[in-house]
Structures are given as C-alpha cells and as structure tokens.
Nucleic acid binder design. Structure first.
Lengths: 171, 171
DNA sequence: TTAGTGGGTTGGAAATCCGAACCCACCTTC
DNA sequence: GAAGGTGGGTTCGGATTTCCAACCCACTAA
C-alpha cells in the first residue's frame, strides 16, 4: 500500500482489515473473550489469532484482562473504541443477510429500543440496521452525497464529484 | 477458515474482506471506475487489482462496461448490490475519522438530505453517519442488542447473551 | 516515427497463512 | 502419584498470497 488516496476507510482497514480481525471483534462483542473460544468461533489458526490479538490490544480496541493468576489467564475485552466498530459489523451483517443468504439467516439480533415502558413487558423487535445522518435524521442515499477530498491532487470525478473553487463543475 | 460460527459478517468478508476490495468499492462509488484510476487511487498492484475486479464482477458487485471498442476498454461500475455496501464504507470512515485522525479529516462528505427545497438554494450539511434501527428509529446502542444464533451449538455467552426458551425477558 | 496511454500478463522474491505439533502450568480423577 | 484434560500459547515447515517491476499489445497523438 504505497501512496494511495488518503482516506479514513483505508486507515481503518489497515488496522482491522486483516483476516479474522473483525471476526474477533464480533466474538468479543458477543461475549466470547477467551483465546480458545476465539479459536473455535472464528476459525483462525492459533498463531494468527495471537498476532491479531496483540495488534488489537496495541491499537486500543481490546484490553487484556487477567481473570486468573496461577496460572495466568486472560480474556480480551472490547474497549469503548472497539465497541464503536459495531456499526461496521452490523452493516456487514445486514448486507450479507440481504445478498448472500439462501434460506434462514444464521443469526437474528433483537433490539430493545424505544425507551422501554417502565414496569411493562420489555419486548424487543428484530434489528434492521440503517445508516442515517445524525444531522438531518434521514436515511443516507448514495445520490445525496457529495465527496470533498481535503488533500490537493486527490479529486473525485464521478457523479459524486466535488465542485470546488472554480465556477465550472467537475468532470 | 474451516468451521467457524456461521455468520453473515464472515460470509460478507469472505467476499469483500480481501485487501483492496473495499477500497475498490470506495473508488467506484466516488466515480473512479477505470483500471488505472483504481491502480493509482487504491495503491493496489495491478495484478492484484485484476483478480479483485474479477471477483467483484463475478459476485455481482461490479459490472464491466465497455466504453470503447478498438481498443476494447472497460470501466467497472458498481451494481446496486455494490452500492449497498456503502453503509459499510461510511461506518468505517466515521470510525477512522473519530479514532485515527490527528488533524483534519482526509475527506468530508456533504449530505443533501431533508428533501431539497424545490427552487431554493440547495445547501448540504456535513454527513454524520449513525446506525439506527429501521423498526423503531432509534440509534443502535450495544447494550440494547441481544443476539439469537439460529444454528444449534453456536450460542453466545456474554452480556449480549441469548436468553432462549425461558420466559423472562432480557435486561 | 516516436512517444504515450490504457489495460492488462508474467516472473521471481517477500510476506502471510496454515495445520499440526509441541510446551508448560495447573486441575481432576483414578 | 500417574494419567489425562484444559487453557493459552509458541514453533515448525510448507503452501498460498502478495508484491513489485518489467514486459506486452493495441491504439492515439504529435
């Protein structure tokens, strides 16, 4: 990855884009925080898992917490930053559910939103994740976006073209 | 990846989780659809890019459209399914902007939402992507989720644990 | 004619991934 | 107290992938 467009997507992927990294985060989010659980549930080879865990801990996405001395044993808990990657996992899962699944989905997420009625039955509903804009509250559609690269020399040219500092429009 | 938890995240990543694949989708979403643009903007080696493009076309995320005969030249346009991965890109970018950036963000997305006033000035605002639940409209928080694996033998055990087959509700 | 461009393909070196085996400390059961 | 099991790794050699530079071919422009 020599000199590509400077981009937060690329930088994030440099951190968690290696094989198994996001699956590890999925598992710790689900509560499987121990080494052998991670081996079983992600399918990663043990040595690969070791290096992934090291990397994620160093990056501050996981923390290594001892749950036993003698023998020293650790679990890997997601930090706040790690949990904040959950939206990525949710959108990946939603896409896979929509495009890759033949029959039933392999996992259903139940969402307890809408300020649970105090005292009443607390009932959830199925989660249907959608990306919206915090500013205006609307669902984000591709055609409503315009990209403004901040680095000179890395303009965009397509339908989402930037119309910068010169009267004529791009393309 | 032998036998791991059956999961749409894993299946989606098996498709687009290889190095550069998501960057390719970023670029075609931005309008850079030609081979050498993709080489420049993603930083991928040309041969790797060739195999990635082949894979994405086969999977139906891109379509190869001729824009010149003699010599035959193609561009790679995102299909609807490909564009539907944009939420993944947006959440990755949002995370990187929040956690990885020292100074200014490398790219700002302008959102034209809220049903543009017909005739008036069409002004956008900065996009702040948030994952919400289409069912109840609320922002999705980790603690509001409960996972229900559908495959026997792949239960979850953590704070998002499943509470199956016993009447009491979660939380 | 010479140079340049778009879109690849090829070859060898470098990095990564993989599975299995091994290790060690502890706990339990016979 | 020997035998086996478990949790958490490390080490090994070999199989894949990735990388990068060089090359190729068809065409266009100067």
């Amino acid at each position: 990855m020599k000199d590509a467009r400077p981009c937060s997507i690329a930088r994030t992927l440099a951190l968690v884009g290696e094989k198994y990294s996001l699956l590890v985060l999925r598992e710790v989010s689900l509560g499987a925080t121990r080494f052998d659980q991670l081996v079983r549930n992600t399918g990663a080879p043990r040595d690969v898992l070791t290096t992934r865990l090291k990397r994620l801990v160093d990056a501050g996405l996981l923390e290594k917490v001892a749950y036993s001395e003698k023998p020293p044993r650790f679990e890997y808990r997601p930090t706040r930053a790690g949990l904040e990657l959950e939206p990525v996992l949710l959108t990946l899962m939603a896409w896979g559910d929509r495009h890759l699944i033949d029959g039933d989905r392999p996992m259903v997420l139940e969402h307890f939103g809408g300020r649970a009625h105090p005292g009443g039955h607390v009932t959830g509903h199925e989660l249907v994740p959608v990306v919206t804009c915090a500013e205006c509250g609307e669902e984000v559609r591709h055609d409503d976006l315009t990209a403004h690269p901040q680095t000179p020399g890395w303009t965009v040219t397509g339908p989402a073209a930037v119309r910068e500092h010169d009267g004529r429009s791009a393309r």
